[in-house]
Design a protein around this nucleic acid. Sequence first.
DNA 1: GTGGTCTAGACCACT
DNA 2: GTGGTCTAGACCACC
Lengths: 131, 131, 131, 131
Amino acid sequence: MLFSLDFESKDPIYSQIVKQIIIGIAKRELRPNEPLPSVRSLASDIGINLHTVNKAYQQLKQEGYILIHRQKGVVIHPEGVPKADSEYKETLKQTLRPIIAEGLCKDLSHESIADLYQEVLKEFQREEDIK
Amino acid sequence: MLFSLDFESKDPIYSQIVKQIIIGIAKRELRPNEPLPSVRSLASDIGINLHTVNKAYQQLKQEGYILIHRQKGVVIHPEGVPKADSEYKETLKQTLRPIIAEGLCKDLSHESIADLYQEVLKEFQREEDIK
Amino acid sequence: MLFSLDFESKDPIYSQIVKQIIIGIAKRELRPNEPLPSVRSLASDIGINLHTVNKAYQQLKQEGYILIHRQKGVVIHPEGVPKADSEYKETLKQTLRPIIAEGLCKDLSHESIADLYQEVLKEFQREEDIK
Amino acid sequence: MLFSLDFESKDPIYSQIVKQIIIGIAKRELRPNEPLPSVRSLASDIGINLHTVNKAYQQLKQEGYILIHRQKGVVIHPEGVPKADSEYKETLKQTLRPIIAEGLCKDLSHESIADLYQEVLKEFQREEDIK
DNA sequence: GTGGTCTAGACCACT
DNA sequence: GTGGTCTAGACCACC
């Protein structure tokens, strides 16, 4: 798995790592039980401190995306992530609202916003889904 | 305009204000040239620090949402916000990507994600658009 | 609130802090909305690193015992902690099992173990409960 | 004797083994002088490292639960474990305190905590005790 | 002054 | 070699 990090971003590094791993899981590039690099090796690969990687892993663990074994290292959670409940859906809408509002203010049409959305969604298209 | 702020949120207060004003503009509850409360009055209304409101306004001004006149006060930008360019669209997709990925990981279908998206989009429906 | 920490203990310092705060809440010495010392002040009071205190606070936050405001600091959660569900009860029994087994092996009678238990429980007796 | 180990647990493997053997003794499923499997066979049965089993046995030996003979192998200590002294009782209360506090914070009543405690205690009920 | 993030470097427990 | 814990010290964002 490749990481592209922006060290200048306002979004903290550990958060960028979290997001990329979640994207990897959603794209099924990372499958259940697949091992992730160790805290130390990933840190030195990226050229950051091991604590930063650890913080990302801890958050992923807390949200159910991965399992952390003391010696075996880190793996994608074999049973997947807790499914979305209605509370989560509400949070998601809450998150979407200002993003969509910004697009509308910048004169994007409803259609072009919906298109952008579909484009992103397509990135996650899987063979199974097409069948 | 009413503000509902969450002081426990990880999202800073000034950012919540910015978002709500942008949402207000997108919903056309706030129209071009419409005056916004002064920094002082808004701060005391909400019960927060002057600096916080000021920071929100400065950001809105910097992004072209509002104009700040020394005497006349603060108004919604009469000419609207700079339109979206392709760079902005890319940023928007970048923002959407981890959000959508998270939903997919939580086992939401492409359809139900698209539905949620449409629901939010509908909140911004305007009479003009329906005609 | 006073902290008595054992720096030689196998139980990590941050965990000892967590436990003492939970005990404080259970004894109602710490009431909802009551402020806790800042990360820095508690760290320097105890004579440990601020990260250690922070780790304790983060865990308490994650388990719903406290709220962490970016500027206002840390307070006991105003609405209390998520109530015990049946899963938690099972975990609790799981935790208790080896502890009780050890006592029995050391020839404590069922009665004396039950007595010890009651003694601890009494430490948490509250005026309201006695009325 | 059957072992059920949780390799994902925060509790180390060797400690889980120790606890289960202590529980076995408390339930009198393991009687004084009863032989335990050798380090080698237990390790290969469970599919774990020799060192892990050895560490568990060493701890049990050190606390007086078992005897390790070079030739005869491992047996449950024929004379039982050193009886509880007042220091031990204090340690036990110390251990119990945060566990009980957590239950109380989660809104369990004194009664329901005592009930849970009794349930666990009953698991160790023996015929002799009932007579 | 508050917590949040990041770095650097050390020691330990577990397998 | 793995993650867990702790320290020390720095800079930033928020209010």
